[in-house]
Every structure is written in structure tokens, then in C-alpha cells.
């Protein structure tokens, strides 16, 4: 069976969530891989939410807000942009590839853009393959445990690198 990515989306209530509703009302069809979490403003999205989603097994995270200048709360989306630029750098350092996290401006009238964005993101994340942070955490934990065990034991101090 081919790999089906799991994507967590945070959509702002006023633009992108409404656009996703519009896509529904217009019966547009798109990939079923995205799970939407509603927030009032994309500015509510703490970078920790994105990290948490990856940590809990998401293969991708999509964040949707109003277009610059169109925020229902005047400027929340600018704050989002600021935070997510920084987050992008951190994700890179953690070995999470470009394309797994995406910030998109989708207005309430752009149902079609929801469809296009979701389909495009699903295709790209599918091509990247599973991220499986929980699995990686387990491996890392194991390595640390082994290391600890080793340090606590009387074994020689020099060891081969684990991987």
C-alpha cells in the first residue's frame, strides 16, 4: 500500500476555515489527508503547536491565514509570518525537510485555493515519505539509554558511534 501522509492543518476562522467551508459548499474534491484544527486567528498558532504536531506523528503541517492586509484582527497574520519564518529555520535544523511545513494565505473566497493547496501539499509530502518523529524519538531515546548504560557500566570509555 502506498504511503498516505498525515497532515495537520491550523486554519484561521475568518479566512481559511471559511474557504474550506466554501470548498465544501462548492463540492470541490481534494485529498482526504488533512485534519483541520480551527483557531480564531493564525496568530494564535504557537510554534509549539507545529512542533507538537510533528512530534506526535504528523508528516506535514499546514497553516492557513488571511492574506496580508486582510486579517480580521488587523495584523495577526503578520505576527504569524514573523514567527513561522523563525520556526522554518528551526525545523530545518531538526532535519525536517522544506515542504513539510507550509504557511498559506487563503481568503474566505478562495475555496479553490484550499483544494489546490491541499492536493499539492499532499503530493509533495507523499514524495518526501513518512517523517515519523515518534519513531525517531524512540531511536534517540534508545541511543541515550544505551549511552547512559554504557557510562554507568565499567566498559571501556571508547565506543563506536551508534550509527
Amino acid at each position: 500500500m502506498s504511503f498516505e501522509p498525515k497532515i495537520v492543518a491550523f486554519f484561521c476562522n475568518w479566512c481559511t476555515y471559511t474557504a474550506a467551508d466554501l470548498a465544501g459548499v462548492s463540492r470541490l474534491k481534494y485529498a482526504p489527508n488533512v485534519r483541520v484544527i480551527r483557531v480564531m486567528c493564525s496568530g494564535r498558532v504557537d510554534p509549539q503547536f507545529v512542533m507538537d504536531a510533528f512530534a506526535k506523528g504528523a508528516d506535514g503541517v499546514l497553516l492557513g491565514g488571511c492574506h496580508p492586509g486582510d486579517c480580521h484582527y488587523a495584523e495577526g497574520n503578520y505576527k504569524t509570518l514573523r514567527r513561522m519564518r523563525m520556526l522554518n529555520r528551526m525545523l530545518k535544523d531538526m532535519g525536517i525537510e522544506d515542504g513539510r511545513f507550509r504557511l498559506e494565505w487563503i481568503s474566505g473566497a478562495e475555496g479553490e485555493k484550499v483544494k489546490v493547496t491541499v492536493n499539492d501539499m499532499v503530493a509533495k509530502v507523499r514524495a518526501l515519505g513518512p517523517l515519523d518523529m515518534p519513531g525517531k524519538f524512540k531511536e534517540w531515546d534508545k541511543e541515550i539509554e544505551e549511552l547512559e548504560a554504557h557510562v554507568n557500566s565499567d566498559a571501556p570509555t571508547e565506543v563506536a558511534h551508534a550509527r
Binding site: C41, R44, D46, K79
Partner: peptide
């Protein structure tokens, strides 16, 4: 007005947004 921008930014996590708590 309930956007939650402050809640997302608070470094000590002391700002709570009703209905959208961490």
C-alpha cells in the same frame, strides 16, 4: 476581540485564550 495572538506569544504561558487554551 479574541484573536489569541498574545496567548501564542506569552513566553511564560500565563495568557490563556478561552475556548482555545493550550
Amino acid at each position: 476581540k479574541g484573536c489569541g495572538v498574545c496567548a501564542a506569544a506569552c513566553p511564560s504561558g500565563s495568557i490563556r485564550q478561552n475556548l482555545f487554551e493550550d
